[in-house]
Design a protein around this nucleic acid. Structure first.
Lengths: 189, 189
DNA sequence: TATGATTAGTCAGTTTCTTGAGTATGGTGC
DNA sequence: GCACCATACTCAAGAAACTGACTAATCATA
């Protein structure tokens, strides 16, 4: 039951519709959790049923109507409880790592392609995170923002996202170099 | 269906029992995938049914009997196919990030404790990975091992695991410093 | 001589996540 | 003017993952 807390945490910044949340939790800004739209709508329904969020209908002229959600006091209390409980250790589950683990027994070519693709993806996300960070801190230098900013949670998680993608990119580049050299060497024989 | 490929990749290094795999996929050496024992036993049963792994009974005197599994040719072909297919992007799902995201609205104290705990866990895993790496490469220098080693897949994934835990530790330390300073500042008022 | 840890698994039940499709409207580009 | 994309959701089915309990033997520890 961590998706529910992720949704609560995301709603701390204001009111969002399911659709807006879905955007944030999808490819874009999912720097602290990931989920698909259907899951979010379902979770929002459960959260509302349990009184942890409150939704209100917003009638729109040019667009379909939407429901905006905010965290209730009960929701905040639930988050507080969650934050005080022990965290599960984080672990890795990554297709690409499985492929690299098997790389001595399968074709190197396709793996190299996917490493290159992953580098591109990581760099795109790094740029996105960089922009987000600048937007959040505005003109204030980072150190000062972190000392005195009102809302630094999203900034801190974004820093982790950025570092994670840097790690991804660096590793992919390193591995690519190693595998490329081995491929060359094996083809020379 | 990526657990099946993770199991196949893990079995490339030789024969393992469900129990041994469970150890590797649990807290210990899960540097490329994570799964619980029950899942592994179930997946091994499915893999055997589909002819991708073959198991053989080993009768033991002092211990319960066990079944050792190895990858079949069909299993290797399946892995090959998997390696050539596109990878899903990797994404983050981490309780602790959710808590940090919400840190402006919940108590800082518990979050700081958990960051410290995460640092300890990360350092323990870094040491484990360091030992594993040394064991895999033996006396050979890393560059040479990566150029000429027979089986480098596990070494490469272990490098990612190590870098990931370093990133974890560095981020936790940074965030802890920021939050500690803010906590001090708010208590002075 | 109990107690607990380790080896080696199995079974059942539930939650969570993913996949795929479907509804409806308005705006944008060619 | 027609196709396609964006907004804003909903429904259903199935796969994957998690939780917790249970068997059964040996070995180490207190």
């Amino acid at each position: 039951m961590a998706l529910r807390h992720a949704v609560l945490a995301a709603l701390l910044d204001g009111e969002y519709s399911g659709y807006q949340l879905a955007k944030a939790f999808d490819v874009g800004v999912a720097n602290f959790w990931y989920a698909q739209p259907q899951q979010l709508y379902a979770e929002l329904a459960r959260l509302e049923r349990d009184g942890l969020v409150a939704g209100r209908q917003v009638v729109q002229e040019t667009r379909p109507n939407k429901r905006l959600f905010r965290v209730t006091d009960a929701g905040l209390a639930e988050l507080e409880k969650f934050a005080a409980a022990a965290s599960k250790p984080s672990f890795v589950r990554d297709d690409l790592l499985v492929k690299v683990q098997a790389v001595d027994h399968v074709g190197i070519g396709p793996v190299l392609e996917q490493l290159a693709e992953r580098v591109r993806a990581a760099e795109a996300r790094m740029e996105l995170f960089g922009k987000l960070l600048r937007k959040m801190r505005g003109e204030t230098p980072e150190e000062e923002f972190l000392r005195g900013g009102e809302r630094i949670g999203p900034y801190l998680t974004c820093l982790r996202g950025l570092a994670f993608e840097q790690g991804n990119r660096d590793w992919c580049l390193r591995i690519s170099a190693v595998l490329t050299e081995r491929k060359g060497a094996s083809e020379h024989r």
